[in-house]
Design a binder for these strands. Structure first.
Length: 107
RNA sequence: GGAGCCGGCCGGGCGGCCGCGGCCCUCCUCGCGGGGGUCGAGGAAAGUCCGGACUCCACAGGGCAGGACGCUGGUGAAAGUGCCAGGCGGGGCGACCCGCGGAAAGUGCAACAGAGAGCAGACAGCCCCGGAGCUCGCUCCGAGGUGAUGGUGAAACGGUGAGGUAAGAGCUCACCAGCGCAUCGGGUGAUCGGUGCGGCUAGGCAAACCCCGUCCGGAGCAAGACCAAGCAGGAGGCACGGGUGGCCCGCCCCCUCGGCCGUAGGGCCGGGACCGCCUCCGGGUAGGUCGCACGAGGCGAGCGGCAACGCUCGUCCCAGAUGGAUGGUCGCCCCCGGGGCUUUUUUGGCUCCGGGACAGAAUCCGGCUUAUAGGCCGGCUCCACGA
RNA sequence: GCGGGCGUAGCUCAAUGGUAGAGCCUCAGUUUUCCAAACUGAAAACGCGGGUUCGAUACCCGCCGCCCGCU
């Protein structure tokens, strides 16, 4: 399975965060919305604020979340924003991947 | 064996599986595709404290203001404590470490204590003179002398000795320390050593104002260049061509159109808008390419130099993302800590659990500073013991 | 990337080279039947580490934290 596209523009972030379904987990808040076209490649936006750590841990969180998404979440049809919390750096990867798949697929 | 000083280096390794970014090659069903190869974070990539390269502001001068720096000589493209070597002063038993223009240009500052704190000062004390008293080794009163003694303070206007004196005092002398001038010698120099003379003392703080010397234009790769796409302008002010940057001065240079003159550089005359800048409101776009990865470059030899470093030769090509790649996960080994077992101690073996730092390139480079688990190497000092 | 400002009692702020102060808060006492108010008293601080100075909250240097601009 391939990695999802990355969201970049402020506009896209706003769209997903305002119109999407909000779900919480121990390591972050999820915003999930159906993509405009059903078989478009899914998009993933990662919001990792400065307060969770330095550049190293923030990058690490983003990499782990991307990998966790790739491991099981739908390849097509969803736009997702994950707002990370400091716990995301320490959560077991197995648990992280299951949580991401479950919360996205539940939509 | 213990304690310590200085310098340099590394900063997990190997292998599966699944992935990411750049470049090259290749295949086809040509696309937002497949395959192969290759490269892919750091010693600090960090903080942004200095300095440069580079780009734009069209370009150089003088003065003022402002800022930075400050022993000497090297080195380096440059630089606040860049680095190396040296000088002087201070600290430490020592290896070593820390500091560095000027206080006899001027202004200013010093709480409390203390008699007195900046051309210093009589509280006690000491001494002399006059008077009075007396138990006649003194006491009291008055006028003076004195910076040797006490006490205060961070700091009290050289130290020791002798002479001198009523008591004292650089008052005089000798030596020492320190200062100035002259001079000799060593050193490129900071400065060191010596000789002579002078006057006897000139305090501290410039990370207080300041003085002297040296240096400094501004902005920053979101610089800047090109391409593409796209909308809708309005109000006010400034200027009446622009340029100079914080200010001033003088000077110089550059636009366009028409006409005339000149071989030409250019000159003269006349005209000058589209437009420009600033502030506010409103609208559009925030895509691509270049800059952008060969450089004050890395590594290894040789030579020169005490060294920093330089020169020559050989060899290598070594990240270029753009919401931002260099990862996720598993196994083995290594290191550290803890528990259990093994025959007791030391050494060791087996097994289980936990941990392995600080930290992520964004134009590039040279420094500085700060963070950092654990480990390696080299040089040196002091103490104790032994030979 | 470039630049600026601020860290002082629990909170909001002063003082600027010598002893750090005010208001609110807290605690104790007086007063009151009790509470409040009032009065009296007390506790409590210069972000951290070096340096300059006799002496630093202030001056200089380096860190740490927070806030704000410009592009």
């Amino acid at each position: 399975m391939k990695h999802p596209r990355s969201l970049s523009s402020r506009r896209d972030f706003r769209r997903v965060m305002h119109t999407g379904a909000r779900k919480r987990s121990s390591f972050g808040t999820f915003y999930v919305v159906r993509a405009v076209e059903d078989n478009a490649v899914s998009s993933l936006g990662l919001a990792v604020p400065r307060r969770v750590g330095g550049a190293v841990t923030r990058n690490r969180i983003k990499r782990r979340l991307r990998e966790a998404y790739r491991a099981g979440a739908p390849e097509r049809g969803f736009d997702v924003v994950i707002q990370a919390r400091p716990e995301a750096a320490h959560v077991d990867f197995q648990q992280l991947a299951e949580e991401v798949s479950r919360l996205v697929a539940a939509q």
